[in-house]
Amino acid sequence: MQVFTTHTGRAAPLGRSDVDTDQIIPAEFCKRLTKTGYADTLFANWREDPEFVLNDPARAGASVLVAGHNFGTGSSREHAVWALRDWGFRAVIATSFGDIFLRNAFKNGLLAVALSPDVVERLAGCAERDPAFEIEIDLDRRDVRADGGTWTFEVDRRARWLLLNGLDDIGVTLGSAQAIGEYEGRRHSWLPALRRGELATGRPAEHGVAR
């Protein structure tokens, strides 16, 4: 996963509140079997409107989405984060987020920043007026800088650590591979274990046994 320490990018103003995950990515696109390649699905229904913000060529390359209140509410689909990430967004700024969306975002390298309504409105207004308007986000300092202002934000300690180190849960586990191997080497051979290949097939050992 890509390390996130600081990021400066052009902002795209969404200008909508209570955006749920079905609006971020419609359900029919969640049948794909990969974790990448979802850029074409992001806000698919809204993008049928030629006036939708992401259809504006001047917004190409924007990497900070400025939304409204309660962004990412609704179902728990992780695909919503994948679609935002694959489009090129590194961060989403809003006044609040759906709880599950927030967890999925941090697990997939997307920074979700909650700021006060007046600040979000200010940033969105700047972005609407100027497609080249940039926002700088410093995760190490936990602040946002733009339009001559600086605002701090709160972020879960573990989520911040994962982003700063470019890790997801799998990466954290792999970091303990040596300790896990040593533990497995000390286990008694008669204890239950998966035979080789059974992780792939999903079939249990015939007698619940070993190696």
Score class of each variant (00 low, 15 high):
A60L: 00
L84F: 12
A94P: 06
V92G: 08
F71Y: 15
F106C: 05
K107G: 11
L110T: 11
I100Y: 11
N104C: 13
L115D: 11
S76K: 10
L102Q: 04
A80V: 01
S63M: 12
D86R: 03
A67F: 08
A105E: 01
V53D: 00
F89P: 06
A67L: 13
G68Q: 09
A105V: 01
S96Y: 08
R59C: 11
L84M: 15
R59H: 09
V66E: 05
E78C: 12
V92Q: 11
V64M: 00
N104P: 13
N55E: 13
A112H: 00
L111Y: 05
G98N: 12
N108T: 09
S75H: 12
A62T: 07
S116A: 15
N108C: 10
W82L: 08
H79I: 08
W82P: 04
V113L: 11
A58G: 01
L65D: 01
F89L: 06
L111C: 08
G74I: 05
G98S: 15
S76V: 13
D118M: 06
G109M: 15
W82Q: 05
I93L: 12
A80S: 03
L102K: 04
G72N: 11
N55F: 06
F89V: 03
L84E: 12
V113A: 12
G74H: 03
L110K: 10
G109Y: 13
S96R: 10
F52W: 10
A94F: 00
A112V: 02
G88C: 09
V113Q: 07
F97R: 12
A114M: 08
V66Y: 07
R77N: 04
G98Y: 12
N108G: 14
L102R: 07
V81C: 11
V119A: 12
N108W: 09
L84W: 13
W82T: 03
A83T: 14
F97I: 10
V81P: 07
N70A: 00
A91Y: 10
A60V: 02
N70F: 02
A105L: 01
I100E: 08
D56R: 01
G61T: 03
G109C: 15
V81S: 11
A62Y: 02
S75K: 10
V92P: 07
L84S: 02
D56K: 04
R103E: 07
A60G: 04
V66C: 03
S116C: 06
R59P: 02
A67P: 05
L65G: 01
P57A: 10
R103P: 02
S96N: 11
A114R: 08
G72Q: 11
L65W: 02
P57S: 11
I100V: 15
G98A: 09
A62F: 06
G98P: 03
G61D: 05
H69Q: 01
E78Y: 13
W82C: 03
F71M: 09
I100N: 06
G109T: 12
F97C: 14
R59N: 14
G109D: 12
V64S: 01
V119W: 07
F52T: 03
A60W: 03
L102Y: 12
N55M: 05
S63R: 13
A62E: 00
G74L: 03
V92T: 15
V92R: 15
S116H: 12
A114I: 15
G72D: 07
L102D: 02
H79F: 11
L115V: 13
S63P: 05
D56F: 01
G61E: 08
R90H: 02
G74Q: 06
T95G: 09
P117M: 02
I93N: 13
V53F: 00
